[in-house]
């Protein structure tokens, strides 16, 4: 299943990548693959910006704005402000 293309905030700084492969393990959408001693983005539009790769990158080579792709959460963050918004108890989380 695919969502919108060209929307992710994901960027990878190849010069800082040490090729540990953590991102390839934690990404639930197969966005990364190891190419020799460096990681590579192979499916950029598969990214759902969960932030697992960023949290587990030891050198800070990955940057993105993580969040939940949940409309009801985004509406709450517009109306109540980012800090007070939560996606529960309505909807899934």
């Amino acid at each position: 299943m695919r969502y919108l293309s060209n929307v992710t905030t994901l960027t990878l700084d190849g010069s800082r990548c040490v090729g540990c492969g953590s991102c390839t393990l934690v990404c639930p959408h197969g966005v990364y693959a190891l190419n020799g001693k460096k990681t590579q983005i192979v499916d950029r539009d598969g990214c759902m910006e969960c932030g697992a790769c960023q949290t587990n990158c030891p050198t800070g080579a990955i940057s993105l704005t993580p969040g939940v792709g949940c409309a009801s959460y985004i509406i709450k963050s517009w109306t109540k402000g980012k800090n007070k918004a939560s996606c529960g108890p309505s909807l899934c989380c």
Binding site: M1, L4, M48, E49, C70, C87
Partner: peptide, 12 residues
């Protein structure tokens, strides 16, 4: 979208 495991916040 909040219940799916593949929608990105930027896209939503």
């Amino acid at each position: 979208t909040g219940c799916t495991p593949y929608t990105s916040p930027s896209g939503v």
